[in-house]
């Protein structure tokens, strides 16, 4: 079962603005039944003020697709067309208290339907220009297309670089092999095209060599403690966040610990993370990392900047 927030469940069980809007003057259709996801967004826009007076939706899809569609209508009603266009798919996900990484595409579908409906209102057609690949890194929601683009544009040849640029493999690391195979394939293409030197290209055989580990001098028998104190937990959380910050900073973002309350860890994202489309996936990644370090489940909650 997916880890849906209460808000997602609420918007799925009792969706607001579901159904047909009879006097719509802007309609956007995205998705297809073959993909298992399709959304029709209907808008009634006041001609003079360009204010969206009403919005309704019809969705074929999973629970989070229906919740995202409903959330979208709630977000745009009362806004002008220009204001509505400033919304990102992240705003939809945030409104719902976050979505599982595999379900972020549901919020993207809402974002696209909004653009399609507004284009239709203006008498244009909207072209779908995004392409997706297989989801490689579930912790940070990085797909194959994102990894490949980062490698080509920045001429990346090591896994460390790929992690710095895309965050992929930065948390649990179970996707290392699949990311490595993309890096090896793209590097081979780039060598063939004369874009990089063959000597620099990523070598999967070398990457597969076992890694040496620093020897730990203390014995687990003497250090094992039945219960961690709050201070000990906070120190571990701080250290784990410190380890993650270089990756966030590489993207112009940052993160700081605000408070720890039982199993709830409050953090503040700053810099480029604010309003970033992938912020909720970043939070998910931090959560996974902290849970591994502490050896117990916890919930990471983003605190809005300035609070």
């Amino acid at each position: 079962m997916w880890d849906y927030t209460d808000k997602v469940k609420e918007y799925f069980y009792n969706p607001k603005n579901a159904g047909v809007l009879e006097d719509a003057n802007g309609v956007g259709d995205v998705g297809a039944i073959s993909c298992g996801d399709a959304l029709r967004l209907m808008l009634k826009v006041e001609q003079d003020t360009e204010i969206i007076l009403a919005a309704k939706f019809q969705t074929f899809g999973c629970g989070s697709a229906i919740a995202s569609s409903s959330a979208l209508t709630e977000l745009i009603i009362g806004k002008t067309v220009t204001e509505a266009l400033e919304l990102t798919n992240q705003d939809i996900a945030d409104f719902l208290g976050g979505l599982p990484p595999e379900k972020m595409h549901c919020s993207v579908m809402g974002y696209e339907a909004l653009r399609a409906a507004i284009a239709n209102y203006k008498g244009d057609t909207w072209e779908d220009d995004h392409e997706e690949g297989a989801l490689l890194c579930k912790c940070f929601g990085v797909d194959e297309g994102m990894v490949e683009r980062a490698i080509r544009v920045n001429k990346l040849t090591t896994m460390e670089q790929v992690t710095h640029f895309t965050k992929a493999t930065g948390s649990c690391g179970t996707c290392v092999e699949s990311v490595e195979s993309v890096l090896a394939r793209v590097n081979a293409d780039m060598v063939a095209a004369g874009e990089i030197d063959a000597a620099l290209a990523f070598d999967p055989a070398r990457a597969a060599l076992p890694q040496r580990r620093e020897r730990v001098k203390s014995s687990p028998l003497t250090t094992a403690k039945p219960q961690m104190t709050l201070l000990q937990r906070i120190r571990i959380i701080e250290a784990a966040i410190e380890e993650l910050r270089p990756y966030l900073k590489a993207d112009g973002g940052d993160c700081e610990l605000v408070d720890v309350d039982g199993d709830r860890v409050m953090v503040r994202l700053s810099g480029a993370c604010v309003g970033c489309q992938a912020a909720s996936v970043t939070i998910g990644g931090i959560q996974e990392r902290l849970a591994t370090k502490l050896g117990r489940p916890l919930r990471v909650i983003p605190v809005p900047p300035g609070h």
Binding site: K9, F12, Y13, G36, D37, F60, G61, C62, G63, A65
Partner: peptide
């Protein structure tokens, strides 16, 4: 004309457990 995950979630709310071959429950398309 409807998708399996939604059916499962609503049935689950009614206390009924069954399964679907739908894409959305497995994470693939």
């Amino acid at each position: 004309f409807i998708e399996g995950e939604g059916i499962l979630l609503l049935l689950n709310k009614a206390g009924i457990a069954c399964s679907s071959g739908s894409a959305c429950t497995s994470g693939s398309l």
